[in-house]
């Protein structure tokens, strides 16, 4: 699978890369929404995993832009705490699934399989 990961915290990127590459997935990582968008414009992905709380443009903005660039692409949201507001906004943007941080490798893999 070709997966795009958007998160401002390098340790999350590092963790995801460690888990997903071990499973043989192909990864692109972006530290900002703009960077993520440029990836999306250039290539297509099987899945995007994005954080919500980011400085500047946040995860919702990322999902919106992704929705324009790659409308069919499933989106997995990583968030520190799943709140109703997040769920509501995510639903309106067509989020596929959610995963709460912190997570174990198994939890992440299960979430990806579900998508």
């Amino acid at each position: 699978m070709k997966i795009l990961i958007v998160d401002d915290d390098p340790i999350i990127i590092l963790s995801c890369r460690r888990i997903l590459e071990a499973e043989g997935h192909e990864l692109r990582v972006a530290n900002t929404v703009d960077e993520g968008e440029s990836f999306l414009v250039e290539e297509s992905f099987d899945l995007m995993i994005t954080d919500i709380k980011m400085p500047g443009a946040d995860g919702f903005e990322m999902i919106r832009r992704a929705g324009k660039a790659r409308p069919e692409m499933p989106v997995l949201v990583m968030t520190g705490y799943l709140m109703q507001e997040t769920l509501d906004e995510g639903a309106s943007l067509g989020v596929t699934d959610y995963i709460a941080k912190p997570f174990t490798p198994d939890e992440l893999l299960r979430a990806i399989e579900g998508v």
Binding site: I12, C16, P102, F103
Partner: peptide, 10 residues
Amino acid sequence: NNPLTAVLTF
């Protein structure tokens, strides 16, 4: 949460 994710992962 983020450091914990890393600890759990590794």
